[in-house]
């Protein structure tokens, strides 16, 4: 049982503030993904939870115990590093056993656990090898097995798949999800890859500029971004944004069309590219680029002089220069406050 509570954790490096007072609670056995672009503070937050970095202010609690003053080894955690950090001077067996050896676990138990986790990660035939004789994917498996062998309350993962090639990443992602769900640990997983985040997470914490912008389940983060940043960061292609003029009584004029919107002083209209379909009454868009991608066609256009993307049926093949009309699905329209950037 390990609930992780992060209370007003802030971190500065000199004059640079990497984290601004972050609050986050991660439930027991939850798979939490910290998602954000590089430099957003996600790795710093993970390292603070691990104890590899000390917060400037704030508290970290794991399983009801305050740990921010404790060294990493007293926190009941295991970690998978971005570059795997599989010890080159030890065999795969000894790498997986490393944490158990430090705890002076009896040999029979070490054998049992190494065997079990190696089988789980499908590396039982590699136990006698050194890491220099392994491929990147195999090293990754060793790194995960080493963490699992600890049977920790919490597993921390720092971009564990980012050094693998695309195909391998896909395979490992599915495998990780299965293995971690079975191990019943609380997992915090750092990535900059939104697809990875969406596919793995119970909940995603989207981070930007040292703050958590939104922490919610993947569909919620995708459908109802709490801030403009979330919409623009998640989704490929990302959300479209158009300026809107108030037309009175909660109505807003967007590129000549009128939509029902929030009662606010100013608002920005937003719609996901796949929530558009061609319709005579839609937003007028001048087609710039057409990219047929097989299952659908990606159209880059310009609406009222603003860039705008639509994902359309692949049977539709407009040509550059065409004027088309794209109607948004009404209940998928989102509104953001241009001043605060948050959802309305």
């Amino acid at each position: 049982m390990a609930v992780i509570e992060i209370k007003q954790v802030a971190k500065s490096f000199g004059s640079f503030t990497a984290l601004h007072s972050v609050d986050l609670t991660i439930a027991d056995q939850e798979f939490m993904v910290l998602l954000g672009a590089s430099g957003c503070g996600k790795t710093t937050l993970l390292r603070i939870i691990a104890g590899l970095e000390t917060p400037t202010t704030g508290e970290v609690w794991i399983g009801g115990r305050r740990v921010d003053h404790l060294p990493p080894r007293e926190r009941g955690i295991a970690m998978v590093f971005q570059n795997y950090a599989v010890f080159p001077h030890l065999t795969v067996f000894e790498n997986i056993a490393f944490g158990l050896r430090m705890k002076k676990v009896p040999q029979a138990e070490v054998d049992r656990r190494v065997k079990r986790t190696a089988e789980l990660m499908h590396i039982e035939q590699l136990l006698k090898r050194y890491s220099g004789q392994l491929s990147g994917g195999q090293r990754q498996r060793v790194a995960v097995a080493r963490a699992l062998a600890m049977e920790p309350d919490v597993i921390l993962m720092d971009e564990p798949l980012s050094n693998l090639d695309a195909l391998l990443r896909l395979e490992m992602r599915a495998e990780l999800k299965g293995v971690l769900a079975e191990s019943k640990t609380t997992t915090i997983y750092v990535t900059h890859d939104q697809v990875e985040a969406m596919s793995l997470a119970d909940r995603i914490s989207v981070m930007n500029g040292g703050r958590i912008v939104q922490a919610a389940n993947p569909v919620e983060v995708y459908r109802n971004p709490a801030a403009r940043f979330v919409g623009s960061f998640i989704g490929n292609p990302p959300m479209n944004f158009l300026t809107a003029q108030p037309a009175g009584a909660g109505k807003w004029q967007v590129a000549g069309q009128v939509f029902d919107g929030p009662a606010a002083a100013a608002a920005e209209f937003a719609i996901r590219p796949e929530d558009l379909h061609p319709s005579e009454s839609g937003l007028p868009a001048e087609v710039r680029v057409v990219e047929p991608l097989g299952p659908h066609t990606l159209v880059t256009a310009s609406v009222a002089g603003q860039p705008f993307r639509a994902v359309l049926e692949s049977t539709l093949t407009p040509r550059p220069g065409d004027m088309i009309h794209l109607a948004p699905v009404p209940d998928r329209i989102r509104w953001f406050d241009p001043a605060t950037q948050s959802a309305l």
Partner: peptide, 15 residues
């Protein structure tokens, strides 16, 4: 020696 090895040792319980 890359720093990550030392950090891995810390995390995995080494004094």
């Amino acid at each position: 020696i890359p720093k990550e090895y030392g950090e891995a040792a810390d995390v995995f319980g080494a004094s």
